[in-house]
Design a protein around this nucleic acid. Sequence first.
DNA 1: AATGAATGAGAATTCATTCAT
DNA 2: CATGAATGAATTCTCATTCAT
Lengths: 222, 222, 222, 222
Amino acid sequence: MRSPGTVHSMVADPKRIGERREQIVRAATKLFSEQGYYLTTIQDIAREAGISVGLIYQYFRDKDDVLFLTLKLVLENYENEIPAALEKAEHPLERLYVALRAYCRVVDRMRDATVLTYRSTKSLRAERRNAIKEGETRTNRLLEACLRACIAAGHVRPLNDSLLVYQYVLFSHAWALKQWALRGRYSLEDYVAEGVGLLVEPFLTDKGRAALARLRRSRRIP
Amino acid sequence: MRSPGTVHSMVADPKRIGERREQIVRAATKLFSEQGYYLTTIQDIAREAGISVGLIYQYFRDKDDVLFLTLKLVLENYENEIPAALEKAEHPLERLYVALRAYCRVVDRMRDATVLTYRSTKSLRAERRNAIKEGETRTNRLLEACLRACIAAGHVRPLNDSLLVYQYVLFSHAWALKQWALRGRYSLEDYVAEGVGLLVEPFLTDKGRAALARLRRSRRIP
Amino acid sequence: MRSPGTVHSMVADPKRIGERREQIVRAATKLFSEQGYYLTTIQDIAREAGISVGLIYQYFRDKDDVLFLTLKLVLENYENEIPAALEKAEHPLERLYVALRAYCRVVDRMRDATVLTYRSTKSLRAERRNAIKEGETRTNRLLEACLRACIAAGHVRPLNDSLLVYQYVLFSHAWALKQWALRGRYSLEDYVAEGVGLLVEPFLTDKGRAALARLRRSRRIP
Amino acid sequence: MRSPGTVHSMVADPKRIGERREQIVRAATKLFSEQGYYLTTIQDIAREAGISVGLIYQYFRDKDDVLFLTLKLVLENYENEIPAALEKAEHPLERLYVALRAYCRVVDRMRDATVLTYRSTKSLRAERRNAIKEGETRTNRLLEACLRACIAAGHVRPLNDSLLVYQYVLFSHAWALKQWALRGRYSLEDYVAEGVGLLVEPFLTDKGRAALARLRRSRRIP
DNA sequence: AATGAATGAGAATTCATTCAT
DNA sequence: CATGAATGAATTCTCATTCAT
């Protein structure tokens, strides 16, 4: 009956629901990220959130629900931050750069939570898992739109855009997944710059290269 | 005392250890891949392997050990198959192509196990986790050597090779991690071909392009 | 961090802790005494106490903890009953008699638990074992004080008091340890009387013997 | 069918039975004494004895059997050593002294095994337990005979001999049971001397005292 | 006779979930 | 709404015992 993307609560007041859930999910995110889903107990979450065990069950049906909302929140971060960063950018190439950098930054800010996404999505019930995947797809589409705009404007040569977008996503996630290998070798900004060098610039047309040079001169792009 | 990369057994005979462990790990790989580490019980593994619970503990110290050997085996597959595939290839560019395709093929053959790597490495004790990471690093170096040879021979322009190798790795892993999105859109061979188009060819020098054309004509590369 | 003499609980309310622990320890004492520590399962204890298995783990860290508190309680009985019995006694000789009789009576009341002390102290972790031994030492000192007072007052001739006190302790414990041999031959009171005949009276001075006669006449001592 | 004091074996040759059993029991005694019956595994015993697990089951029906024979052996030590020590002694008083000292010496030599007697007798099946108790009773009778001879000869005044014998037994056992308190305070010989002072000499008649003096002068008693 | 791999029942412990207060 | 004590099914791991070699 319930849509797979909805979480049921025993409490009526929506405002309180919002507050409590955030409180709980914040604690859960921390603990799930640190120790993983199965090693984190409801007790742990309650303690971390400074509330009682029972209260969690007022706002979530079960532990799976908590995980679901936790993962959903990570994706929502992606979905919110990228558009926010894009607001000030107009030029298609700038928008692509900005989107990529924004993605890497969210990942950086939520390193552990991003890893959690990889570790724990499969722990969800199948229906829930799909809702998460859709969220990821939506984020991908944000990047895809930027890339396509560049192609449409003739800055990037025609290519398998959807696959390249996947590569962008993986590149961003890698900052979290392979932090043990990457951090220490690169700063975040260097990492983004190198990524752009490998995953964007090779595909620029002459027009694209010229535009990039201009954008760099006007300091719209580092 | 034990090195972190060794698993202890109560049984002396090395031949039997090898057989039994393979039997157990085969079962574990299947179940861990399907249900994840924590939802798979020792009972499950014993049943799947057709042996008793107690016997597992004759060949593994604990459940963590089973996971460790399972993950180690996945990495060993990587480490074995890529060199094997490279044996017949001589030309640096051919070797790079072959290595990449071999990697994607192992991943394809061990799709679930590869996902397991991402999900469950963190479930290991820290020391073990590092042993796994080292295995991954060794695999990366195989690709790195191929890429560097291409650069040294002037087929690929100088670039951030270690980061590009990471893109190769991620690209290969993605075939397992994002199978829900990629399969149905590409056959494995198409996927590899597209990858090469995005992650190798843009970086070829004139010399490299010429060599590639020759290799294709002589059907050394599809 | 924890002192060796403290048992940890997940429950906060001290009153409830007291009640539940008593309930559990009562059950444990019965079962440990009957079947020994290792043959008694936590299930058994839970069933005997009329509660669930999990609840035991809310009030005790592990099975070792239950044993520890059980043994500690036996010793506390010793430590409480002897001083209580002494309250009404003033004359040094009377006090010695009373203390010895009180000791034998506690042992009689807790026959099985006393045996448990001998059987299971070694099952405790070393730190705990010492805490138990200290409890025993404290009890011994109660007797020692009585004996020394008699010597000081000239009722008992100077002798190796600490060793004689050990003999008193062993004599009392024997009532439990060797019940299969002693009960049926003696009533508790006879046993005590005989013990006094062997372990106290031979050491009385003339003054002591006179005092004893007076105390018997006034029925302060049977 | 089997008598409670017999242990069944699958092996026919009695000589071999004797050897193997001794080998096994020696290992078991060590381990049971150190760790107790339940914490010692058959594996442990096999390893300590340098044989295979299966072999133990050729010479013992089950683990209980091993414990039984182990305890029986301790008692047999008592039963053998005391008469052996008595062989050279003739005078009743000397014999009592010698017996007591011999008892303390066996206990000293088998400290841990003596403690084992107290810890683990109850772990035996009831029938076996009785066989052990009978062994203890037989040992007691050895002492009892010595004490009675002293009384009959007028060296010791008439008294509750069986209870005093128990005190002797307890006194000897205490050397093992309370070693944590006694060792360091006394050497074994001092301990025996003090014990004699408390548990024998007070009961000597004038005749007994004279005899004792003579025996000491002739160095038959230290 | 001897071995030791294999079995599986059984034990301690954990933890998601409930519910009386 | 909020609490946290109570439940008990489920899990990991152990170990006495067997039996094919």
